[in-house]
Design a binder for these strands. Sequence first.
DNA 1: CGCCATTGCGCAATCGTTTGCGCAAATCTA
DNA 2: TAGATTTGCGCAAACGATTGCGCAATGGCG
Lengths: 340, 340
Amino acid sequence: MANKKSTIHDIARALGVTASTVSRALNNNPRISEEMRRQVREVAARLGYEPNHIASALRRGHTDIIGVIVPTANRSFFANVVRGVQAIAQTAGYNVIICQSNDSSTEEANIIDALLRLRVDGIIASIARETRQFVHFRKVRQKGIPLVLFDRVNEDIGASTVVIDDQLGAYQATQHLVQQGYRRIGHFAGPQHLNIYKYRLRGYTDALEVAGMAVDGRLICTGNLDVADGRRYMESLLALSEPPDAIFSASDYAAVGAMQVLKERGISVPQDFGIVGFANELFTSFTDPGLSTVDQHSERMGEFAARLFLEEIESGAEAFLPHKTVLTPTLIVRGSSRRR
Amino acid sequence: MANKKSTIHDIARALGVTASTVSRALNNNPRISEEMRRQVREVAARLGYEPNHIASALRRGHTDIIGVIVPTANRSFFANVVRGVQAIAQTAGYNVIICQSNDSSTEEANIIDALLRLRVDGIIASIARETRQFVHFRKVRQKGIPLVLFDRVNEDIGASTVVIDDQLGAYQATQHLVQQGYRRIGHFAGPQHLNIYKYRLRGYTDALEVAGMAVDGRLICTGNLDVADGRRYMESLLALSEPPDAIFSASDYAAVGAMQVLKERGISVPQDFGIVGFANELFTSFTDPGLSTVDQHSERMGEFAARLFLEEIESGAEAFLPHKTVLTPTLIVRGSSRRR
DNA sequence: CGCCATTGCGCAATCGTTTGCGCAAATCTA
DNA sequence: TAGATTTGCGCAAACGATTGCGCAATGGCG
């Protein structure tokens, strides 16, 4: 690059050898003597040489970079997944860069374009909430770039996926509320075009059926599951002629909103109303009472995603068979649902 | 890159022109006719051509990438700063990539090396908690790469900085506790090698002095300010012969820990004990009572940081004079300190 | 001694895009 | 009409690192 920085040519000149010798020495090629390697390293350090990864990537045909796309970085779930990805990928020599889509399909597509132009070696992503068409993800597959989806996935893209067993997690949460003696259990559901929320709803209905309780559609509220949504749903559920006495929420945020409304109404949690959320966000132990929730083993999820990526790299895009890894969730019981 | 992907040579061949014409057409060079441009775009779309940003970056000498280094991505403060950076940088044609240092000086140095090798156009960073030596940041300056530090900064590096007025924020928080009638105010301080915590301590002592209250060293606890630290400090402060009746904590996390202990001890917040945190983390409105705190205008901070970067790019590293932007904090009063 | 293998390097081309300079044709102006 | 300017392209080199192939020197073995 056209500035004052040293290149391997500067090192080569200083030692009276060629650039190819310098390159091989720096890469520990066995065809270069140990003495030459030592001299090259010494001059490189003296000149403050910094390898140009751009040039190297262009010549080699790969960048050793994995792009990770998260909907929003400030959820501890996503931050922990990234941490898991980093632990595995960095050991294998890859650099991990994070991009946040802000849950926007447009931003997600722009990020994918930028990553493709950057020629990343692979993409690990959780789909933005807004996304309903998957053209941009299919493009990744068509270009033979490894793609691994986690948590929010779409199974028609032909990518490998790592998910939690959302249905089981929801089943456990709802069953727990049944066991705590709650008799009329509602559900805050997310947008049903996203698999995770569809399965969480299914786990909820499963548990009700097993417990011999009818599924009452009036007790199911669907939306974006933020705090304000949670507040609104709680208000409307409490206005029913037969309000519920517990809620399984597909998101910790909406669960917090519900808790706020109950507090304001003087309704006692967990004595008169039980609440379980989902995702074990960092703040679930900060509320009062602590919020029961389902843990998604986010860091493990990240590790699995990174391993799937490495597998695909090793076997080559044509030989690789996309597959799905399903992790088992863990119910975390705190004060919000502990009546017995 | 040596795979089946199209290059500008494929387009050139299809149109019977040279690669330089294709390149100029794709970049809307006025020396290429509108008709030729149209044809080039059509063939490019038909062939699924994706520009190779690696090759372009190597030739042009810059990547149009800004690397943002955050200590940990799951704090909403950092996520919002990144959002602010993205809003400005993307409008100016830059791609923003996020790297998380996990508050480790070693990881931070590795990230900086990777970003330098990638030849990013600039680095925007908040310093990792562990970092006490700044060799890796100085290296960025020496190579003439624009560097902007935000929040956690070091002013000897020669970088531009964007910070909140930590001293003022702390002063406001402590003064508010004084005005609420608390008479013995303690402080959870962070590691004093980090400027932000040093100034927050100074703001605390300033407010006490103005109020005619002595500064009692036994009421000041220093550490990493996580939830567990907050619990520990609260326990030890309550064990004093003269315990405090309020706490200004330099972090919302430690403040939550303190609240948990007070609740367990049956000490009423805010009636018998007042608490104010710092940073307006997402969860501060989820606790019960809601946690008073100081808002740092994180998204604005990100915008300022990005603008400083753009300024440095425009004026060139040699002509640029590093400078410091100080934003004004806002005290957010919630239930934890509202006694009057 | 001659042949083969090993060691340690050099030459030249590659990767994909960009851009300075130059040329030919067309247009404008005195 | 002649000279100057504009338009629209092509040629060739550049960017920095990597790597296949080849060559010379050295050592080992029959």
